[in-house]
């Protein structure tokens, strides 16, 4: 390998390391700012949470009867046994076929 090729490889490696270091710094700064923003919103979360029946998130519950899994399946680690496929339809890449006339998301 020529000395030019070595220098080129060294420069490329240094540039890659610098880029990753900069990106990591940006990531930490972003995480810190987002965390501080969320902490500032905590009083609003507490105020609403006191009125809600559960701390369960409003995810994937709108079309099912499992809006609050902590209450509706309180002791179920799995529906039938460990390592069985997830029976919970929220855990799918695609929604099931819709009823006729309903616009799929």
């Amino acid at each position: 390998m020529t000395s030019h090729a070595l220098v080129r490889r060294g420069r490329a490696a240094a540039a890659a390391i610098l880029a990753v270091a900069l990106a990591l710094t940006g990531m930490f700064l972003h995480a810190r700012a987002a965390g501080a923003r969320r902490r500032a919103e905590q009083p609003a979360i507490d105020a609403v949470a006191r009125r809600l029946p559960t701390s369960d998130l409003a995810l994937s519950g709108g079309s099912r009867w499992l809006r609050a899994p902590s209450m509706e399946e309180p002791t179920a680690a799995f529906a039938d046994g460990p390592a069985t496929p997830d029976p919970d339809p929220a855990g799918a890449m695609m929604a099931p076929v819709d009823d006729p006339g309903r616009r799929p998301r």
Binding site: H30, A31, A34, G35, R37, R38, L57, A58, L59, S60, G61, G62, S63, P89, A90, G91, A92, M93, M94, A95, R105
Partner: peptide, 17 residues
């Protein structure tokens, strides 16, 4: 979608790290 589902009423709030 794979982890949190695809509800009709989907919260749009960004996730906090």
């Amino acid at each position: 979608a794979a982890l949190v589902g695809w509800s009709v009423l989907y919260p749009e709030a960004p996730l906090t790290p």
